[in-house]
Every structure is written in C-alpha cells, then in structure tokens.
C-alpha cells in the first residue's frame, strides 16, 4: 500500500519469522508485507507479543541467535535483501544506513562508562566499520556537536557524566543523537517514548519530527499507543497475533477503521471530553502464538464473528487500505451461503 510516487526504501514481502522453543518451531510473524519510502513514517501498532518489535529487530538481523530466524519472505532495503547478508555486510548497514533506538534507555547505555566515552567510541567504531579512520579528538568534537544538536544542556559537563546521573529523557535524547549521528536512511524506533513522562514524550516526539524533516530519514516506529501514532504516522500497520490486520494511511485508520480489532482499539481509549458510563472493552485476551486457533486470530474476541471466520480471512485491498477480515472479502458472503 505504499505511496507509488516514491520508490520504497524498505520493503518486507511475505515476511515470516519463527521462534524455536525446545523442538517446536512456531511463527511469531506471518505473511507481513509493507513498504516505506524516504522521509516517511510507518507505525507498527499492536499489543505486547503481537510481533511488532520482532519485525523491527529482524530488519537489522537482531533476532535472538539460535531461536529466532526469518523463515520465509524477504526484507529489501534499497533493493538488497537484508536476510541474505553476511554478518560483515550487516554490520556495515548498521554502521552507516540503518539505526535503531529501544524503549529501555537505561539498558542501551553502559552504566560503567561516561557518556563521552560511549559517544566517542560509537563514532570511532562506526568509522572503522566503514573503513575510515577518525582521531579521538575528532570523535570527541563530533560527539559534543551531537549533544548540542539534541538540545542537551551543558554538553561538556554531560560528556563526563555516567548514565545514572542523567534523567530518562536526557538518556533517550542521547540515544537518539547516537542513532542519528550517521544520518541514517532508516531509523527503527521501538517504543522510544513509552518509558518517559508525557511532557518528556512531547519533547522527544518534537525532536524526532524536527530531525526527520531536516534529514529526510524514513522511520519505522513501533508503538502500542494510538495517541503517539496519531501524532507522527504517515502510514499505520495494525498487527494482531503476528499478522497484519489493517494497513492504511494514518487518516484512513483513524477515520475509517474497518477491522474489528482496530475499531475496538480506538473505541477503548478514554478521551478527554468523552465520559461515557462505561468504556468500550475488547473482551478476552490475545491468543497464545504457540497454540493458535485455526482461522481468523481475532475470532474469539470479535463481535462480528460468524462461521466463515473459522477459515483464515484473505487480505482485501480497498482503495488505499488493506484489511484482513471476511466482512470485506469479495465473495465472503457467497462462500458463507
């Protein structure tokens, strides 16, 4: 459903990711197809365990070694299949083209080293992988400039501080700075504001959209928060239990949600100005990925469930939107009859 005016920078085609537990191998992501062009933001939305982070990690080859693997499909980055890359080639991609930031800003920094040491080291490692050399002094200068650009106050002093001496917002700003220092073509942001306070979240989102405009970076933004999605997304892909259930322009998702899960998700969010007696709630819980029921994965929680849903619904294209639901599948009515 990509914007056809621009060639996609990142494209996933029929992506299937499996995890192994003991001897059993089960799919955590199935049949995922999406694309993202330069300067655009695609949000992967869903609940914990729906496969959104795994999808982001798979792009950078960061699946847990030994248990997780891309079992099918391809991930194309500027036309190259990332799945087929050697470890060395992937390192060069990570060093120069694609960055990732995680939710847990405390775990992403080494507690035993100063911010300055970590920043300069990351600059030097990157240059080394890319086959260029850079002196300590140059790396220090670049790091300092980066802190300034991120709006970090008194950067010279911050360079001498340890991660625990900084607030969460400050740490996340530094990580975003590190991720964007190399001017990546693609940024994968995995719940970057979830652990932050609302006022700090507003600062970080503001910073990200500012940097995106300045650098034309494409962003794959992973979140569960529909408010954040409304703020930054150009396109939205809603995931449920390892599958895409709805994929559209942001406006199409919010104004005309078709999949019952998207609809329920939007209706269940309390909104200032709307104090109904009860909130709309999607009953039940997400199915276990190791023991999925056959057919539509949302069937047991769906208010529109019907016998046909015992079969896996196909993905239907409706103008700009893709939706995986029998209610919108052409001929769905007939098959049922």
């Amino acid at each position: 459903m990509a914007d056809s005016s621009q060639p996609p920078l990142l494209e996933a085609r029929n992506l299937r990711i499996t995890f192994r537990r003991g001897r059993r191998e089960f799919a955590v992501v199935e049949d995922m197809t999406f694309s993202l062009a330069a300067g655009q933001t695609l949000c992967l939305v869903g609940e914990s365990g729906c496969g959104k982070s795994v999808t982001g990690n798979a792009v950078l080859g960061l699946l847990p070694q030994g248990s997780g693997r891309v079992a099918g499909g391809e991930i194309l980055f500027a036309g190259r299949d990332l799945v087929a890359l050697s470890a060395g080639e992937m390192r060069r991609i990570r060093a120069g083209k694609i960055s990732i930031i995680f939710q847990d800003h405390a775990a992403s920094l080494n507690p035993a080293h100063t911010i300055g040491r970590q920043l300069t080291e990351s600059v030097r490692t990157r240059e080394k992988v890319l086959g260029r050399g850079v002196s300590r002094r140059e790396a220090y200068g670049e790091s300092l400039a980066l802190l300034e650009r991120m709006g970090v106050t008194s950067p010279v002093w911050r360079m001498r501080q340890y991660p625990h001496e900084l607030s969460g917002g400050m740490r996340q700003r530094i990580l975003i700075g590190m991720a964007l220092a190399k001017k990546p073509l693609l940024l994968i942001a995995d719940e970057p504001t979830t652990a932050l306070d609302v006022t700090v979240q507003a600062q970080i989102l503001d910073l990200m959209s500012h940097l995106r405009r300045a650098m034309d970076t494409a962003i794959l933004f992973i979140t569960h928060d529909m408010g954040v999605v409304a703020e930054i997304a150009d396109f939205v892909l809603v995931m449920y239990a390892g599958q895409m259930v709805e994929y559209d322009y942001a406006g199409g998702i919010f104004r005309n949600p078709l999949h019952p899960y998207t609809e329920g998700l939007l209706r269940s969010i309390p909104q200032p100005g709307r104090t109904g007696e009860r909130l709309f709630a999607i009953e039940g819980a997400v199915p276990d990925l190791e023991n999925l029921p056959p057919g539509c994965r949302f069937r047991e929680r769906c208010p529109y469930g019907r016998p046909l849903c015992a079969r896996m619904p196909p993905v239907t294209q409706l103008e700009t939107k893709q939706v995986r639901c029998w209610r919108f599948a052409p001929g769905g009515e007939k098959i049922e009859a």
Binding site: S167, T199, V200, A202, Q203, D206, G227, V229
Partner: peptide, 23 residues
C-alpha cells in the same frame, strides 16, 4: 500536561506547550 495528551485523532492538531528540561 493537558496539552501533552496525545489524542487518537490526527486531525486534531492543537497548540502543544513543550516544556523545556526535566523535573
């Protein structure tokens, strides 16, 4: 705080007060 609440409605762009600094 109120202006930092993100509503699930992309059309509703409001003036957002972005506080500087941290607690």
């Amino acid at each position: 705080l109120l202006s930092a609440v993100l509503l699930p409605d992309p059309g509703q762009k409001r003036v957002r007060i972005i506080l500087q600094g941290d607690l």
